[in-house]
C-alpha cells in the first residue's frame, strides 16, 4: 500500500481524489518529502492548464469583488512574516571609487515586480498579440521564440508610463522586446537596452521604434532599459525605467 500511495500525486494535483483519499494523501505528504516535492511541481503544472483556458470575467465582477473585500475581514497571519524586502531592487554603484560606495538604491516599483503577474497569464496574451501585430517584421522571430520550450513571456510596466512585453528564450538565444506608450523623451536622448549577467552589463543597442530583437548570451539573466544621451552610452548612466529578469 505504501508504494501505491505515492502514485496518487498526480490525481491529487488534479484535485481528482475523493475526499477521504485526499485527506489521507495530505497526511502522507507531511511524511513523504519526495511526494511533497513532486506534488508542488505537478500543482504548478496543473495551474498552467488553467492559463490555457483563461477568459476575462465580466468587468462588473471586479467592482463587485472590490466592494466585497472592503467588507470582509481577513484571516490573521498563520506565521508572522518577516518584513518583506522589495523582491527586485537594483543598486547603482560607482565602480571608480570603491570605498566611497556611493549607493543609490532605487526600487523598480511593485508594478514592475508584478512582472510575474503577466508572465504566465492569459492576460498577457492580448498585449503579446498587440506586440505581435506591431512587430510585423519580428513576427517570425516571435513565433519561433514562442515555440521554444523555455520561452518566457513577461509584461512589465515602465517607470513613468507605458508597458513592455518581453519574450525570451535562452534556447533560442533571443529576447523580443515590444513596448507601447513609452514616455516621450527629448530628441537629445534615446532609449537604450541592456543585458546583464551576474557580473556585467552590456549594451543591447538603442531602441528605435517600439520593438527590438536582441541576441542573448549565455548567463544573461536581466534586461534593462534606460534613457541615455542620444547615441547611447557604454554603460547605463541613469536609473533604469525597466529592469526585469529574463
Amino acid at each position: 500500500m505504501i508504494d501505491e500511495i505515492h502514485t496518487l500525486s498526480g490525481a491529487y494535483a488534479l484535485n481528482a481524489l475523493p475526499l477521504g483519499e485526499r485527506e489521507a494523501f495530505e497526511g502522507h505528504l507531511t511524511r513523504c518529502e519526495s511526494c511533497d516535492i513532486e506534488v508542488r511541481g505537478l500543482c504548478e503544472t496543473a495551474a498552467r492548464l488553467a492559463l490555457a483556458v483563461a477568459e476575462p470575467p465580466p468587468a462588473a465582477m471586479k467592482s463587485r469583488v472590490l466592494a466585497q473585500i472592503s467588507q470582509v475581514r481577513q484571516e490573521p497571519p498563520v506565521v508572522p512574516h518577516p518584513p518583506m524586502e522589495e523582491p527586485v531592487r537594483a543598486t547603482v554603484r560607482d565602480n571608480v571609487r570603491p570605498f566611497s560606495r556611493r549607493r543609490q538604491r532605487f526600487t523598480v516599483g511593485i508594478a514592475a515586480v508584478a512582472t510575474a503577474a503577466a508572465a504566465v497569464l492569459g492576460v498577457v496574451a492580448v498585449e503579446a498579440r498587440q506586440a505581435r501585430d506591431t512587430a510585423e517584421l519580428q513576427g517570425r522571430t516571435l513565433a519561433g521564440l514562442l515555440a521554444a520550450p523555455d520561452a518566457v513571456v513577461k509584461k512589465v510596466p515602465v517607470t513613468g508610463g507605458g508597458t513592455a512585453v518581453l519574450v525570451s528564450s535562452h534556447a533560442s538565444g533571443r529576447v523580443l522586446f515590444a513596448s507601447s506608450n513609452l514616455p516621450p523623451i527629448a530628441p537629445t536622448r534615446t532609449y537604450q537596452m541592456w543585458l546583464m549577467d551576474s557580473g556585467e552589463i552590456r549594451s543591447a543597442g538603442l531602441l528605435s521604434g517600439e520593438t527590438a530583437v536582441v541576441a542573448l548570451a549565455r548567463g544573461d539573466d536581466r534586461f534593462g532599459l534606460t534613457v541615455e544621451p542620444a547615441g547611447g552610452s557604454d554603460q547605463p548612466t541613469t536609473t533604469p525605467v525597466l529592469l526585469t529578469r529574463i
Binding site: 523582491p87 527586485v88 543598486t91 554603484r93 565602480n95 512582472t115 510575474a116 554603460q235
Partner: peptide, 21 residues
C-alpha cells in the same frame, strides 16, 4: 561614470517574484 547595476534578489526569490510578493 562607470556604473554597475546589479539586482539584489530578495531571500527566497523564485523565477517569478511578482505575484508572490
Amino acid at each position: 561614470m562607470n556604473d554597475v547595476i546589479s539586482l539584489v534578489p530578495a531571500p527566497g526569490e523564485g523565477r517569478e517574484p511578482g505575484l508572490e510578493d
